[in-house]
Amino acid sequence: MQIFVKTLTGKTITLEVEPSDTIENVKAKIQDKEGIPPDQQRLIFAGKQLEDGRTLSDYNIQKDSTLHLVLR
């Protein structure tokens, strides 16, 4: 499925993911596309910070959802 990741600069990254993918996995995909190390990434969805060990389906993230990427 496709999800979107919006950065603070207003750029939107499109990712191909599975509901069973972990947040860690998603961060690795963002690193592949953007070169941002996962340890600098914070992903936010519906006002919640997403934890590495959980999956997209744990957070009820569905296709065409938009996550927000904050760098630390």
Score class of each variant (00 low, 15 high):
1 M>K: 02
1 M>R: 03
1 M>F: 04
1 M>W: 10
1 M>V: 08
1 M>A: 03
1 M>S: 06
2 Q>A: 09
2 Q>H: 07
2 Q>S: 13
2 Q>R: 10
2 Q>L: 11
2 Q>I: 14
3 I>Q: 00
3 I>R: 00
3 I>E: 00
3 I>W: 00
4 F>W: 07
4 F>I: 07
4 F>R: 07
4 F>M: 07
4 F>Y: 10
4 F>N: 05
4 F>K: 14
4 F>H: 03
5 V>A: 04
5 V>F: 06
5 V>P: 00
5 V>N: 00
5 V>H: 00
5 V>R: 00
5 V>Q: 00
6 K>V: 08
7 T>G: 03
7 T>M: 11
7 T>V: 09
7 T>H: 03
7 T>I: 03
7 T>K: 03
7 T>Q: 10
8 L>E: 15
8 L>K: 12
8 L>D: 09
9 T>A: 04
9 T>Q: 06
9 T>W: 03
9 T>I: 07
9 T>H: 13
9 T>L: 09
9 T>D: 03
9 T>S: 06
9 T>Y: 04
9 T>R: 11
10 G>K: 09
10 G>P: 14
10 G>W: 13
11 K>S: 07
11 K>W: 10
11 K>Q: 04
12 T>A: 05
12 T>R: 14
12 T>K: 08
13 I>Y: 09
13 I>S: 15
14 T>L: 05
14 T>Y: 10
14 T>W: 04
14 T>Q: 05
15 L>V: 03
15 L>D: 00
15 L>P: 00
15 L>N: 00
16 E>S: 07
16 E>Y: 13
16 E>K: 14
17 V>D: 01
17 V>S: 10
17 V>E: 01
17 V>G: 02
18 E>K: 14
18 E>T: 08
18 E>W: 07
18 E>H: 12
18 E>Q: 04
18 E>S: 12
19 P>R: 15
19 P>L: 08
19 P>Y: 04
20 S>E: 04
20 S>F: 12
20 S>M: 12
20 S>P: 12
20 S>I: 07
21 D>H: 08
21 D>G: 12
21 D>R: 06
21 D>V: 05
21 D>Q: 08
22 T>R: 10
22 T>S: 13
22 T>Y: 11
22 T>K: 06
22 T>I: 02
23 I>N: 02
23 I>G: 10
23 I>P: 15
23 I>D: 01
23 I>Q: 14
23 I>M: 08
23 I>T: 04
24 E>W: 04
24 E>S: 10
25 N>A: 14
25 N>K: 08
25 N>F: 09
25 N>P: 02
25 N>W: 07
25 N>G: 09
26 V>D: 00
26 V>M: 05
26 V>S: 01
27 K>H: 02
27 K>W: 04
27 K>I: 08
27 K>V: 07
27 K>E: 01
27 K>P: 00
28 A>W: 04
28 A>R: 13
28 A>T: 13
29 K>I: 02
29 K>F: 11
29 K>G: 11
29 K>V: 14
29 K>H: 07
30 I>A: 02
30 I>S: 01
30 I>Y: 05
31 Q>M: 03
31 Q>T: 08
31 Q>P: 02
31 Q>L: 09
31 Q>R: 13
32 D>L: 06
32 D>M: 04
32 D>I: 07
33 K>M: 14
33 K>S: 03
34 E>V: 05
34 E>G: 11
35 G>V: 03
35 G>I: 05
35 G>H: 12
35 G>T: 09
36 I>Q: 02
36 I>T: 15
36 I>E: 06
37 P>K: 04
37 P>A: 04
37 P>E: 10
37 P>Q: 05
37 P>S: 13
37 P>V: 07
38 P>V: 08
38 P>Q: 14
38 P>K: 11
38 P>H: 13
38 P>E: 09
39 D>K: 07
39 D>V: 12
39 D>R: 15
39 D>Y: 11
39 D>P: 14
39 D>M: 05
40 Q>F: 05
40 Q>Y: 13
40 Q>S: 12
40 Q>V: 14
41 Q>N: 14
41 Q>D: 01
41 Q>S: 14
42 R>I: 14
42 R>W: 03
42 R>D: 06
42 R>T: 08
42 R>M: 10
42 R>A: 09
43 L>R: 00
43 L>S: 00
43 L>K: 00
43 L>V: 08
43 L>H: 01
44 I>H: 08
44 I>T: 13
44 I>A: 03
44 I>S: 15
44 I>M: 08
44 I>Y: 08
44 I>W: 14
44 I>K: 13
45 F>A: 08
45 F>Y: 14
46 A>M: 03
46 A>W: 09
46 A>S: 05
46 A>Y: 13
46 A>R: 05
47 G>H: 11
47 G>V: 02
47 G>I: 02
47 G>R: 03
47 G>S: 04
48 K>Q: 11
48 K>M: 05
48 K>V: 13
48 K>N: 03
49 Q>M: 09
49 Q>I: 05
49 Q>S: 15
49 Q>K: 07
49 Q>F: 03
50 L>S: 01
50 L>M: 08
50 L>P: 01
50 L>F: 02
50 L>G: 01
50 L>W: 01
51 E>K: 09
51 E>M: 09
51 E>A: 11
52 D>W: 09
52 D>A: 09
52 D>L: 06
53 G>Q: 05
53 G>A: 04
53 G>F: 13
53 G>I: 12
54 R>M: 15
54 R>K: 07
54 R>S: 09
54 R>L: 03
54 R>A: 15
56 L>I: 05
56 L>S: 01
56 L>N: 01
56 L>W: 01
56 L>P: 01
57 S>D: 05
57 S>L: 13
57 S>N: 11
57 S>T: 07
58 D>V: 09
58 D>Y: 06
59 Y>V: 05
59 Y>G: 01
59 Y>D: 02
59 Y>Q: 04
59 Y>I: 15
60 N>S: 14
60 N>E: 15
60 N>M: 04
61 I>E: 00
62 Q>K: 10
62 Q>P: 11
62 Q>L: 13
62 Q>R: 09
62 Q>Y: 09
63 K>E: 14
63 K>T: 08
63 K>W: 11
63 K>M: 15
63 K>D: 02
64 D>G: 07
64 D>Q: 10
64 D>L: 08
64 D>F: 05
64 D>M: 10
64 D>K: 06
64 D>W: 06
64 D>V: 02
65 S>Y: 12
65 S>A: 13
65 S>G: 05
65 S>F: 10
65 S>H: 04
66 T>Y: 03
66 T>G: 04
66 T>S: 05
66 T>I: 04
66 T>P: 02
67 L>P: 01
67 L>K: 01
67 L>T: 02
67 L>Y: 01
67 L>N: 01
67 L>F: 12
67 L>M: 09
68 H>I: 03
68 H>Y: 02
68 H>K: 02
68 H>Q: 07
68 H>F: 08
68 H>L: 02
68 H>V: 03
69 L>S: 01
69 L>D: 01
69 L>I: 04
70 V>Y: 05
70 V>F: 10
70 V>M: 12
71 L>R: 11
71 L>I: 09
71 L>F: 07
71 L>D: 07
71 L>K: 10
71 L>W: 08
72 R>P: 13
72 R>E: 05
72 R>T: 11
72 R>Q: 06
72 R>D: 09
72 R>V: 10
72 R>L: 09
